[in-house]
Design a protein around this nucleic acid. Structure first.
Length: 466
DNA sequence: CGTGTTTGACCGGCGC
DNA sequence: GCGCCGGTCAAACACG
């Protein structure tokens, strides 16, 4: 990584007087990375203004682990000096460098493994929720969600990610890689077991107590075990989580003459109310592409159309609606992940409420945990040009959906402060929200000519949900 | 006649 | 307990 040379190395040109680029490398008491050494040589080459002379300085490790500093001059190779006194020290540094590289590689493998495992578990959780969601009636779920309200923290978040972070942090604090690996494996096994409602949780807890090697992991869970157990014992946890997802809202603000947003879905108006403080009526729509689809929304204000998506489609969507649906769904998932309570309890809603995302030049995405349900708002009204330079197509927008989730995960080093994590998910990349907004706007812009505010009622879209 | 919209009534949550 | 308000229901109506 870095070399310490106490001796001044003078590389003088001995052939031509014009090539007086005496490279004086004074590294006394100064550590320079290798790339800086190389840059130093190249910079000096530029100063020479001599194109015929190409000087490449490199450090190579010979078979006897000696380190030679060589200079290539017009193809010639000349050994400058050997530093026998420094040989052992440099060799030790190189060995250390190799060790650190190997350790770095192991860390990369570990991180990749953690990410892969998390993704796999995430998919497993989604499948489980979908399965349970199909088995149970939507009405039962809605009633359940209404009665029980918010369920603390997504289950996978509790058992998996945050604990893995702790394990990784413990590794960084000096513990052995093997220990953290075993911890992670243990966490994953517990997470998987937690996803299986048939497991005996008490026996699992007993096993953890009997195993002294799991003390660390148990300590990690100590403050969360009540919550964990309370959740693990419930068969309806997936349904409850599904209810939360259904209640999470993604709000899109657009400027539109139409009373509806043309996003490719079929909407049926089932009510209209005059909202207090708003002269414009608020209309309520349901997705009619499938009976029982939980996605609903309302729009208000004539100049600024506010479309609020609530729930997730439980049926296949046409390509025209896929992009918007997947994006809003991912945004809702991200919102839920970020709105989950911390270890100290529920997040103070005012924190989320004030968590405005300073994306780009203006706040285009805002988080709101104001009652009754957490909402993420994408403000497209500040987009001056609906056909922005991004011009993302629908399929490209669909790629943004997993990006939303990945963004959240990648910048989520610790869930002890989930608000910061959710905020960082978007603010980490200033262009991300801009691209998202541009993509949604492009969809709206391209959809209008076909729909003209009236959605197709011909029923050409099939629904496989009986 | 089928489908979608309109609109007043109804219900439940929430604050005072 | 009461009233307000948001959300939903359902009958009446409109339209192709």
């Amino acid at each position: 990584m870095a070399a310490t040379w106490n001796d001044a190395i003078a590389l003088g040109d001995d052939s031509t007087a014009s090539h007086s680029n005496s490279l004086v490398m004074s590294f006394s008491e100064k550590r320079l990375p290798l790339h800086e050494v190389d840059f130093f040589a190249q910079n000096n080459e530029k100063k020479s203004h001599d194109d015929h002379h190409k000087m490449v300085q490199h450090i190579e490790l010979s078979e006897d682990t000696s380190l030679d500093l060589q200079m290539k001059n017009t193809g010639g190779k000349r050994s400058i000096k050997k530093y026998g006194d420094e040989r052992n020290e440099l060799a030790a540094l190189v060995a250390e460098l190799h060790d650190m590289n190997a350790e770095n590689h192991r860390l990369r493998v570990l991180v990749d493994q953690v990410n892969n495992d998390y993704n796999a578990l995430h998919m497993q959780l989604i499948k489980l929720m979908q399965t349970q969601h199909r088995n149970r009636g939507d009405q039962a779920i809605e009633k359940k969600g209404k009665k029980e309200g918010m369920v603390p923290r997504q289950f996978l978040e509790m058992g998996g990610f945050s604990e893995r972070d702790k394990a990784f942090q413990q590794y960084l604090e000096g513990s052995k890689l093997r220990e953290s690996k075993s911890m992670i494996e243990l966490m994953e096994s517990n997470t998987v077991q937690a996803l299986e409602p048939t497991k005996d949780n008490s026996s699992k807890a007993r096993t953890m107590e009997e195993n002294p090697g799991d003390q660390a992991f148990q300590g990690c869970l100590s403050n969360k075990v009540p919550k964990l157990n309370s959740l693990m014992g419930h068969v309806d946890q997936a349904s409850e989580t599904m209810a939360i997802i259904k209640k999470a809202r993604v709000s899109v603000r657009t400027r539109s003459e139409s009373s509806m947003i043309a996003d490719g879905c079929q909407w049926r108006k089932y009510g209209q109310k005059m909202a207090k403080g708003n002269p414009c009526p608020r209309a309520y729509y349901r997705c009619t592409m499938c009976t029982g689809c939980p996605v609903q929304r309302c729009g208000e204000d004539r100049s600024v159309l506010i479309t609020t998506y609530e729930g997730q489609h439980n049926h296949p969507l046409p390509p025209t609606a896929m992009a918007m649906a997947s994006t809003t769904s991912a945004a809702a998932s991200m919102l839920l992940s970020g709105s989950m309570p911390s270890a100290d309890g529920l997040i103070n809603p005012t924190i989320l409420e004030s968590a405005a995302f300073p994306c780009s030049h203006n706040n285009m995405a805002t988080l709101s945990a104001s009652a009754p349900f957490p909402t993420i708002t994408l403000d497209l009204t500040k987009q001056s040009d609906t056909n922005s330079s991004s011009q993302l197509q629908r399929d490209q927008l669909s790629l943004l959906a997993p990006l939303l989730s990945e963004k959240f995960m990648s910048v989520n080093p610790s869930l002890t402060d989930t608000v910061n994590a959710a905020t960082a998910a978007i603010t980490a990349d200033p262009n991300f929200t801009s691209a998202l907004v541009a993509a949604i706007t492009s969809i709206i812009g391209t959809s209008h000519p076909n729909n003209n505010g009236n959605y197709n009622t011909s029923g050409d879209q099939q629904c496989n949900n009986a």
